[in-house]
Write a protein that binds this DNA or RNA. Structure first.
Length: 189
DNA sequence: GTATCGATGATCT
DNA sequence: GATCATCGATACC
């Protein structure tokens, strides 16, 4: 099966619906001529009316991308790390899916260099590690997910999917909005 | 204006 | 398990 970009309307449903569908998809970056790809194995949905969602208190400069059209990136900073989200739902809703872990596919050398030699789950297991391995930072906030720099491609769905509460948040911790491939060796925990 | 707090990760013990 | 780096967004005065 040929790998191709996800259709534009793929991102139209709610984040909770799309999140499990993204497991197995391929995220690809081409930055300064360096191409890296990975298979998505862990995501979290941040949805309307969700206290843990950055968009919950309205549009600000930081979260503006969440209120833009779906199919674009929302990249934000947390301490000295960056996190990559895929904006979903109808424009203006403010929902997104956080990419928490990928399995490295292409450009492993490049990712290891960016990650200072890290291996295994320390290479790409965790949202900040994903961004560092893929070379993403705040300058990539708002980019389309079907562009030359950042692309999300079709892949193969995992054999099984597990859900759990989300990680690292203090509000709405009981909502089962984390989705992951339990067989992956690259989960964030 | 100042204070507080992270959707984290690295480095300890 | 505990601590902390480090900085932008947000809350508060």
């Amino acid at each position: 099966m040929r790998v191709r970009p996800l259709p534009k309307n793929f991102y139209l449903p709610t984040a909770a619906e799309i999140a499990p569908e993204l497991l197995g998809a391929i995220v690809k970056t081409r930055i300064r001529g360096l191409t890296t790809t990975g298979r998505i194995v862990e995501v979290e949905a941040y949805i309307q009316g969700d206290e843990a969602c950055h968009a919950n208190r309205g549009k600000t400069r930081r979260n503006a991308s969440m209120f833009g059209p779906p199919g674009h990136a929302y990249v934000y900073r947390i301490h000295q790390s960056f996190c990559l989200n895929l904006v979903t739902g109808k424009k203006g809703i403010g929902e997104a899916v956080l990419i928490r872990a990928i399995e490295p596919l292409k450009g492993v050398r490049i990712m290891q260099r960016r990650r200072k030699g890290a291996k295994g789950r320390l290479l790409t297991g965790g949202p900040g590690r994903v961004c560092q391995a893929l070379g993403l930072n705040l300058s990539h906030d708002g980019l389309p997910l079907s562009g030359p720099v950042l692309t999300v491609l079709t892949g193969s769905a995992p054999g099984e999917i597990e859900t759990s509460g989300r990680i690292g948040i203090s509000k709405n911790v009981t909502a089962f909005l984390r989705f992951f491939d339990p067989t992956s060796a690259y989960l964030s925990r």
